[in-house]
Write a protein that binds this DNA or RNA. Structure first.
Length: 703
DNA sequence: AATATCCGTATTTTT
DNA sequence: TACGGATATT
C-alpha cells in the first residue's frame, strides 16, 4: 500500500539502506534531517507513523544511543507501535531502549528519579481526575465555602478551572473571565481553595494528571536541574503536536538541549483536544520558538481512495487553514462516500449490521471495519443489536474499565499499600465498611495520622515519619473504630502491614487485597459474579509487573482502553469489529469506516456550538472520522432521534443532516435512503389486546 | 449526629 | 449509571 513516490527526482540524500527506498522524498527529508529543530506537517494518512519510526531507526543507525532519544506520543499504544516499527526497520531490539511514552508517563518516570530535587516524595501516588475533584470538594467544605444559598462552583467546575489554569499557563483571573464568567465573583475563594488543594496534595504525596506536567515543568525551570535532565537526551521527538497544550510546549522547549534537536510532527487540521487546553498555536509558533526550524510537509496520502479524500478536503476547505496543504492520493475508486439516511436509531443499528455482514461476505474482516461516533453512549443501541446478532466487537473510549466502582475500590486499597498517606484512597476504602460514612472516616483518618503534619512535607532522606506513623497506628490498632466494623478493619490493617513488610510481587499483593475485598464486594454490588471478572483481570495484569509502584502508576496513566484489552481468556473468535469514539480513533485506519449519527446535535455536538472556535473543532472531528477510511466510508443519518434516554417515553426530535455536509457538497457523496419521514406507526388504543388483558387482570384484583 | 436509603435527573471528548 | 438531595433509621 505504501508505494514509493517515483514521480519526483532524487533531490534528497541518497537512500543509505534498502528500507529508505520505501520513503518518498518529503518523508526521507524528515527522516534524515541531521540536526536542529524540525517541524513536520503531516496530513492525514501521509505516513506519519512510518516517518517517525523511520527517523528513530535512522538516528540509532547513525550512532545516537537509543536511551538518549525521547519519543513523546499521545497514547502508550502509539509509542509501542513506533518503537516496534523502528525495531523492525533496523532489525534488532536496540530501539526498545528508547524513552517512549505519553507526556504524563514520562513525567512520572522523571519525577520518580529527580523529584527529590524539588522536594517531591518519589513514592507519590497518581490520582485520577475524579479523586482530584473529590479532594477539591473536601477542601471547599473545610474552608467553609458552602454551595448552599450563595451558588458556588461545583467540584467538577473547580477541577476544570484548576486544570485549565495549569495546562494553559494562563492566570486564574483571565481563565475565569474568558472561560468561566459565572465564577468571576468567587475568584478569591477559588484561589484559597487552589492553594490549600496544592498544599494538601504535597503533604499526601499525591499528584494528579496536571501536577505531573506542572512538576516536570517546575524542574525544568530550575536552571541546574533543567540542564541535568535535558542533557540526558540528544533528540526529542513529539507526535501529535497539534494536540499539545501550552505547558507541554514549554516542557518540550525546556527539554530541547544545546542543539535544539527537537522534531515535532502534527496536523493542524486534526486538532481535537482544545477542551484539554490544547492549541494549534503551538504548531504555528514552533518556527518562531525554535530558531532555524526546518519545515517539511507530507502531502501524499497513502491511506484513502481519492473520492474519500476529495470529500474530506472539501470539508476542510471552508475552515480557516493555517498551514496550507494539498492532500492527494494515487488510489482510485469509483465509489463515492455514502450518506445513508434512515428513519431512526433502531434502523441505523440494523443498517450498520447489515452492511458490515455484507462486507464480511465479501471477505473484509470485522477487524478491518470500524464504527465511529462522537460520544460514548451513541453506540449503545448498536451494541445491543451486535450482541443480538452475535457479532463480536471491542469498544474503545467511553466508560472505561478503571472507572467502574469496584475496580476503583481495589485500586484505592492497592494505593494505600503503596502510599499510606493517600487520603482520598483511605476515604474510599473506609466508606466501604459497615457503620462508617464520611464523618467516621474523617475521624479515623485523623487518628491514623494520615495528615498530622501541617507544614508541607519538604523531604530529605530521614523523613519517613508520615508513613511510619500511619503504619505504627495500624499495627497497634490504636484507632477507634465503630464496633460493627472492628473485625473487618483489623483484617485490613493486617493485609496492609503484611504487604508493606514483606513487599511481595504485585500479583501477590493484588491477590491478598482481593481476598480481603471479596466479601465486602459481594455484599455491596448487585451482580457480583459479573463484576468479579474485572477483579480477576486486575490480578492478571499484575502478573507482568515487578513493582507495585509501576503497577498502580500504569493503571492510573495508561488504563486499559477497552475492557477486553487485557482479556485473560483468548477469545474464541479473535476477529472483532471495532467501535470507537472519534477521539480514540485518532491515528488509526480501517478498510471500511461507518460513522454514526452524522446529524446536527451529534456532530457538531449540541454542547459545542457555543463559539466559532468550538464549531471549528467539531468540523475537524468529522474530518478525523472521515479520513480514517481506506476504501469505503459510510455516514449514517437517522431522521428521528429520541430526545432523552429514559426521558418521557416517546419524546423525540427531528434531525437535520450535519451542517458540515451542505447541499452544495452533495455531488461528492452517494445518497442512499429517503429523506421523507414516515409517520410513526400507531397502535390504536381501543383494540389493543394488551389493554384488554390488563383490564381483566385488574378486574381480578378487585374481586 | 451520623448513616442508610430512596428517588429524580442529567449524561462529550481524555491523560 | 452515578450523583445530589431529601427523608428514614440507628
Amino acid at each position: 500500500m505504501d508505494l514509493p513516490d517515483k514521480s519526483s527526482p532524487l533531490s534528497n540524500p541518497k537512500p543509505e539502506s534498502a528500507w529508505m527506498a520505501d520513503l518518498n522524498d518529503a518523508q526521507r527529508l524528515a527522516v534524515t534531517h541531521p540536526v536542529g529543530p524540525l517541524l513536520v506537517i503531516a496530513g492525514a494518512g501521509t505516513g506519519k507513523t512510518k516517518t517517525l519510526a523511520s527517523r528513530v531507526a535512522w538516528l540509532i543507525q547513525t550512532g545516537v544511543s537509543p536511551e538518549r532519544i525521547l519519543l513523546l506520543t499521545f497514547t502508550r499504544r502509539a509509542a509501542v507501535e513506533m518503537i516496534s516499527r523502528a525495531s523492525r526497520v533496523i532489525g534488532d531490539q536496540q530501539s526498545s531502549r528508547v524513552w517512549g511514552g505519553t507526556f504524563h508517563a514520562v513525567a512520572s518516570r522523571l519525577l520518580r528519579s529527580h523529584g527529590r530535587t524539588i522536594g517531591l516524595d518519589p513514592g507519590f501516588n497518581v490520582i485520577d481526575s475524579e479523586d482530584s475533584a473529590d479532594l477539591m470538594d473536601m477542601i471547599r467544605i473545610e474552608l467553609g465555602f458552602e454551595s448552599g444559598e450563595r451558588r458556588f462552583p461545583k467540584k467538577s467546575t473547580l477541577a476544570a478551572i484548576y486544570s485549565r489554569v495549569v495546562s494553559s499557563r494562563e492566570k486564574l483571573g483571565d481563565v475565569l473571565v474568558q472561560r468561566f464568567p459565572w465564577c468571576v465573583n468567587d475568584q478569591d475563594a477559588i484561589r484559597q481553595i487552589f492553594e490549600a488543594f496544592t498544599k494538601r496534595k504535597r503533604q499526601q504525596a499525591v499528584l494528579d494528571y496536571d501536577d505531573l506536567l506542572l512538576y516536570w515543568h517546575a524542574m525544568l525551570q530550575v536552571p541546574e536541574i533543567g540542564k541535568m535532565i535535558s542533557k540526558q537526551f540528544d533528540h526529542v521527538l513529539v507526535d501529535e503536536y497539534q494536540d499539545t497544550n501550552p505547558i507541554q510546549a514549554e516542557i518540550v522547549f525546556g527539554m530541547r538541549g544545546e542543539k535544539s534537536n527537537v522534531t515535532a510532527v502534527g496536523d493542524d487540521a486534526q486538532a481535537i483536544y482544545s477542551f484539554r487546553a490544547a492549541t494549534v498555536e503551538n504548531m504555528l509558533n514552533f518556527p518562531k520558538q525554535f530558531e532555524g526550524t526546518t519545515l517539511v510537509r507530507l502531502e501524499q496520502n497513502y491511506r484513502s481512495v481519492q473520492p474519500i479524500l476529495t470529500a474530506s478536503n472539501r470539508l476542510m476547505a471552508d475552515a480557516p487553514h493555517q498551514f496550507a496543504k494539498n492532500l492527494f492520493s494515487h488510489r482510485k475508486s469509483n465509489q463515492a462516500p455514502r450518506i445513508i439516511t434512515i428513519q431512526d436509531e433502531a434502523a441505523q443499528s440494523g443498517e450498520v449490521c447489515r452492511r458490515i455482514l455484507q462486507k464480511v461476505e465479501e471477505g473484509v474482516s470485522l477487524r478491518g471495519q470500524a464504527v465511529l461516533f462522537r460520544a460514548g453512549f451513541h453506540s449503545d443501541a448498536l451494541e445491543v443489536e451486535l450482541q443480538r446478532r452475535n457479532i463480536p466487537f471491542v469498544k474503545y473510549g467511553g466508560l472505561k474499565f478503571v472507572e467502574a466502582a469496584h475496580v476503583k475500590d481495589m485500586l484505592a486499597l492497592l494505593k494505600i499499600i503503596h502510599n499510606p498517606l493517600d487520603e482520598m484512597s483511605w476515604h474510599r476504602v473506609l466508606n466501604l465498611f459497615d457503620g462508617i460514612g464520611p464523618a467516621q472516616s474523617k475521624r479515623i483518618i485523623e487518628a491514623l495520622g494520615v495528615r498530622a503534619s501541617e507544614e508541607p512535607k519538604l523531604l530529605d532522606e530521614s523523613d519517613q515519619t508520615g508513613e511510619a506513623r500511619v503504619l505504627k497506628n495500624l499495627r497497634d490498632c490504636s484507632v477507634p473504630i465503630p464496633a460493627v466494623a472492628r473485625e473487618q478493619f483489623a483484617q485490613l490493617a493486617h493485609t496492609i502491614i503484611q504487604c508493606v513488610d514483606q513487599q511481595p510481587m504485585p500479583m501477590v499483593v493484588v491477590e491478598r487485597v482481593r481476598i480481603f475485598y471479596e466479601p465486602i464486594f459481594r455484599k455491596l454490588y448487585e451482580n457480583p459474579d459479573l463484576r468479579i471478572r474485572d477483579i480477576e483481570q486486575l490480578e492478571q495484569i499484575a502478573r507482568s509487573y515487578q513493582s507495585l509502584e509501576s503497577y498502580v502508576t500504569d493503571l492510573a496513566l495508561d488504563p486499559p482502553q477497552s475492557t477486553q484489552d487485557y482479556a485473560d481468556v483468548p477469545l474464541f473468535d479473535d476477529d472483532q469489529l471495532i467501535l470507537s469514539t472519534i477521539h480514540s480513533a485518532k491515528g488509526c485506519e480501517w478498510e471500511i469506516v461507518h460513522v454514526l449519527h452524522v446529524s446536527d446535535g451529534c456532530i457538531p455536538n449540541d454542547m459545542s456550538c457555543g463559539s466559532e472556535e468550538e464549531l471549528a473543532e467539531e468540523r475537524r472531528l468529522l474530518y478525523v472520522a472521515m479520513t480514517r477510511a481506506k476504501d469505503e466510508l459510510n455516514l449514517y443519518f437517522p431522521l428521528r432521534s429520541y430526545a432523552k434516554k429514559g426521558g418521557r417515553s416517546d419524546r423525540h426530535s427531528y434531525c437535520q443532516l450535519s451542517r458540515f455536509l451542505p447541499p452544495t457538497d452533495m455531488q461528492l457523496y452517494e445518497r442512499i435512503g429517503s429523506d421523507v419521514l414516515k409517520p410513526e406507526p400507531r397502535v390504536p388504543i381501543e383494540s389493543s389486546a394488551i389493554t384488554v388483558n390488563v383490564d381483566r387482570m385488574l378486574g381480578e384484583l378487585w374481586k
